[in-house]
Amino acid sequence: MNTIRIVAEKELNDIIRTRSQMLVGIFFALWFSAMTAPAIMTAEKSLVFDQYNNLLFYFVLMPGIFMAYMFSGKVFFNEKREGIIETLLCTPLSMRRIWAGKILGVTIPAYLIALLTAALITLIANIITTTILLPSPAVFLHIVLVVPAFIAVAVGLMGFGHLLLGMRENQILNITIFAAIFLAFSLANNNVTNGGSAVSGVLVGGMLIIAVLLLALISYLTRYLSKERITMTLS
């Protein structure tokens, strides 16, 4: 655990100290909340609470995933492009530990941005409705458990892809993920503006199970990641 923590701390400090990246993160939190929270005005008075929870359900995860995408590129892709990963692979750390440390180091700041978005959506929603709105227990669990789990899944998957693939394939992967995030955003936006259904505990539980299964699957997939594969796909 100690070496995983060392890698995670380094990545976390590096991300937090990169002012431009943090500013982009804060900007996205503001943008996502400012763009989505006003949707609450379209809801009927009796549905305001459900609408607010719907907003939190979709739009807290979205910036978290987006930041995971941004930070993963820096942490995994840049390290591979610059060849630093080769030196890291010569240290006593196993590849899985390096990978796990990096997932942790990226998930934490991405999750912090997601939490900031949740706080901003709540603030804007409260101002608009002039009532005190707080997340339902299901949505609260979603924010506390499902969101970080899905961010970790996204980081793990992107990190796995960055390590496994060559530079050109990685660029294609980056564009594909970017497009997928925006497609997911527009679908979610559509769902929320159309009212959507109330977020249930079953839905959140189901999502948590999916996240845990995906994490286990990605962890299993790292068995197919070899030093030779990483070395041979360096630029």
């Binding site: 100290r17 030196t87 006593p92 030093k227």
Partner: peptide, 24 residues
């Protein structure tokens, strides 16, 4: 081999890339 962390702990490596983080 990949699992021999003990050996890796006894060697030092300077590859074409210096293994340094420019932001640090």
């Amino acid at each position: 081999d990949e699992h021999n962390g003990n050996i890796r702990g006894k060697i030092g490596v300077l590859l074409e890339n210096n293994g340094l983080y420019e932001r640090l």
